Computed example of a mutant assay.
Amino acid sequence: MKPDSRPRTRTALRTAVVTALAATALLGSLTLTAPALAATAPAGDTAVVLQAQDQRAAAPKITRAEEIRRAKLWLTANGGKPVPYSQHKNWKDGYRQDCSGYASMALGLPKSGPNTVALKNDGWTKPIKMSELRRGDLVIKANSGDPDHRHVVIFDGWNSGKGSYQAYEQAGQVGTRHASHSYGLKSGDGYHAYRPVNLSD
Score class of each variant (00 low, 15 high):
M1H: 09
D4L: 09
T9C: 04
T11D: 11
A12P: 00
L13A: 13
V18Q: 09
A20Y: 00
L21Y: 00
A22E: 03
A23T: 05
A23F: 03
A25Q: 02
L32I: 05
L32N: 11
P35M: 03
P42N: 02
A47V: 03
A52I: 12
D54H: 13
R56S: 07
R69S: 15
K72Q: 14
L73Y: 15
N78I: 01
K81G: 10
H88M: 09
H88D: 12
K92P: 01
L107K: 02
L107I: 02
K111W: 08
S112A: 09
S112H: 04
N115K: 07
V117T: 11
K120Y: 11
M130S: 14
E132P: 00
R135M: 15
L138P: 00
I140Q: 10
D146G: 12
D148F: 02
V153H: 08
D156V: 06
D156K: 05
S164F: 08
Y165F: 13
E169I: 01
Q170F: 08
G175L: 05
G175M: 02
T176I: 08
R177F: 00
H178F: 12
H181C: 10
L185E: 06
S187F: 04
G188V: 09
G188W: 05
D189K: 13
Y191L: 06
R195N: 03
P196G: 04
N198V: 10
L199T: 04
L199F: 01
D201W: 00
